[in-house]
Design a protein around this nucleic acid. Structure first.
Length: 270
DNA sequence: ACGTGTACCTGCACGC
DNA sequence: TGCGTGCAGGTACACG
């Protein structure tokens, strides 16, 4: 489900959980992406000190030197609720001292959660090899130019590699390439300096706009209060195969690249 | 090291 | 109605 804007929207929505103390935890017996042996009892009686995000991972820090890493996979949802009904795909939930709940539901079970010592967060298997955040200073022209220069792979798939830059998934790379007027078919190393500069700017702009609109809701994404995002109304190419380009009126092309759908305008993007 | 394909899992929309 | 197929906001791994 979620790319960076959706996870960031959820993170912001969870602000009200900070300072709450956990008094009870629930976990399902279903296997998520990893078989986890974590001892959730360790966070009972702990208080949430802050909730951050790294790439598409939510990180809930507690006042007892532990951190819960949560990834939403394709279909994960995190909600804050007054009660816990234990729905079919609820895999984790905790009750706070004010009688409210935080619930993690994931239909397809591509997500996961794990509990680690906060000081070991950076060493976690899933976090240790991540590239820069797209909004950080480290994601700049010099960096990207150097990285792309050796890559023969198409620019679209390349930009979705979390070791290059994190958080950019299938929706936002399609939209960013359209805004940059760069064809997804281009080899990564073929981009000019000017194009790289443009691409960095549009990636940041596209992600920021999506965050401002609360993310994109296609089928099941929602914020922690159950509300949908609005960026899906702004899609220029994603999901618009065989519809006409909003700029030149020619048909938007749909094709597969490395197993994922790509959408682009042959006329506007080259 | 790279590129490609596949696996993980459920549910929905589609065509017959 | 039902059944088969393909598709979906992600990521890791196993090959060549």
């Amino acid at each position: 489900m979620p790319e960076l804007p959706e996870v960031e929207t959820i993170r912001r929505g969870l602000a009200s959980a900070v300072d709450k103390k956990i008094i009870r935890v629930f976990r399902s017996d279903k296997k998520l992406r990893f078989d986890s042996t974590l001892d959730l009892e360790k966070i009972v009686n702990a208080k949430i000190t802050d909730i951050s995000r790294r790439a598409r991972y939510l990180i809930i820090n507690f006042n007892n030197q532990t951190s819960l890493i949560l990834h939403l996979g394709m279909s994960g949802q995190v909600t804050l609720a007054q009660s816990f009904k234990k729905l079919k795909h609820d895999h984790f939930a905790c009750l706070f001292d004010d009688e409210t709940w935080l619930i993690f539901n994931d239909t397809r079970r591509f997500g996961f959660f794990d509990l680690v010592l906060t000081k070991n967060l950076g060493k976690h298997k899933m976090l240790s090899k991540l590239g820069p955040e797209p909004f950080s200073e480290d994601f700049n022209e010099k960096y990207l130019q150097e990285k792309l220069s050796t890559k023969k792979m198409n620019i679209k798939t390349t930009m979705m590699d979390n070791e290059l830059v994190v958080g950019i998934g299938n929706i936002y790379i399609n939209e960013s390439l359209f805004e940059s007027k760069i064809s997804p078919l281009r080899s990564a190393s073929s981009l000019s300096k000017t194009e790289i500069k443009k691409l960095i700017a549009t990636v940041k702009k596209t992600l920021q706009k999506a965050i401002d609109l609360g993310g994109s809701t296609i089928s099941d994404y929602m914020a922690v209060n159950g509300e949908s995002g609005y960026f899906q109304n702004d899609f220029k190419v994603y999901g618009r195969g065989r519809e006409s380009c909003l700029i030149c009126k020619n048909l938007i092309q749909k094709m597969k690249q490395n197993g994922r759908s790509s959408f682009y305008c042959q006329t506007c993007q080259s």
